[in-house]
């Protein structure tokens, strides 16, 4: 007798990830659609396309809201679910089945990241269709990178502690502050080393900026962020494998 294939539960993973994956669409709609619509309806679509300044204003609202929705969506995507399964005792039921827990959670993460990316790209597609053409492939790549990096960090926090939300927020805030200071060369040697060892959130932001502007990022930066994200998942899965599931 062998265990259940980790692919068997994909349909349910997709269903569980759907709500979190559409959060950025709701966020974008709630924040950007009204002001953009008001500018467009006041001046008319032709005026927006013809008037450089007006178009600039619309694009500024679009890009600021897009990056906010992407970051918040990525933060929420994989936060809490492992710790919740453990804390509420779901693990006892789920893993009495012939299922390998780390494979189960890996599948959940892969499905969530894929769905987040696929749904997020609807924003630039819709914007290009309805307002003015914007970069699409760059948004797709950025969404994937952010979902992977923040998702990996959230998963590791969930694998490590029950209060994963608090750990995640502390890590993100501390990392962002330290790395911003490090970028401005305002840190001493030790703190600079610590800042560089933390998840490359500021570097991911700069990779995204270049992609959204239609430029190629620095390869070393992209490699650093990508490998770091993969490492976060690997460590999270090893922790899930090695530590007690009921705590």
């Amino acid at each position: 007798m062998t265990g259940t294939s980790p692919l068997a539960y994909l349909r349910w993973h997709a269903r569980d990830s759907l709500l979190r994956s559409v959060v950025p669409l709701f966020l974008f709609s709630a924040i950007a659609v009204l002001p953009i619509r008001s500018l467009v309806s006041r001046s008319g679509m032709d005026a927006v396309r013809a008037d450089g300044q007006l178009q600039q204003n619309v694009l500024q609202i679009y890009s600021q809201t897009l990056t906010l929705a992407m970051t918040l969506g990525a933060v929420l995507l994989l936060s809490g679910f492992i710790a919740q399964d453990r804390e509420r005792g779901h693990v006892r039921f789920l893993f009495a089945a012939p299922v390998v827990p780390w494979q189960h959670y890996l599948m959940r993460a892969l499905v969530a990241v894929a769905m987040f990316t696929a749904l997020f790209v609807l924003i630039p597609l819709g914007f290009s269709w309805l307002v003015v053409p914007v970069e699409i492939v760059g948004v797709l790549k950025s969404a994937l990178l952010f979902a992977a990096l923040y998702g990996g960090l959230a998963m590791l926090c969930g694998a490590l502690v029950n209060k994963d939300g608090a750990l995640f927020i502390v890590l993100v805030v501390a990392t962002t502050i330290l790395q911003q200071l490090e970028k401005g060369e305002l840190l001493g040697h030790t703190l600079a080393v610590v800042a560089r060892a933390l998840p490359p959130l500021v570097l991911a932001d700069s990779v995204r900026s270049r992609w959204l502007a239609g430029n190629a990022p620095v390869s070393a930066d992209l490699l650093h962020v990508g490998l770091y994200a993969v490492a976060l998942y690997v460590v999270a899965l090893v922790v899930i494998r090695r530590t007690p599931l009921a705590r």
Partner: peptide, 29 residues
Amino acid sequence: GVAYLPELMNLPLEWRTAETLDRLATLGG
């Protein structure tokens, strides 16, 4: 796998009964 019944059913409470059994049948192979 093990047939397991805990003292309290600990599964997400927003799941529906038939859905819960479908999910667990899927996980159960």
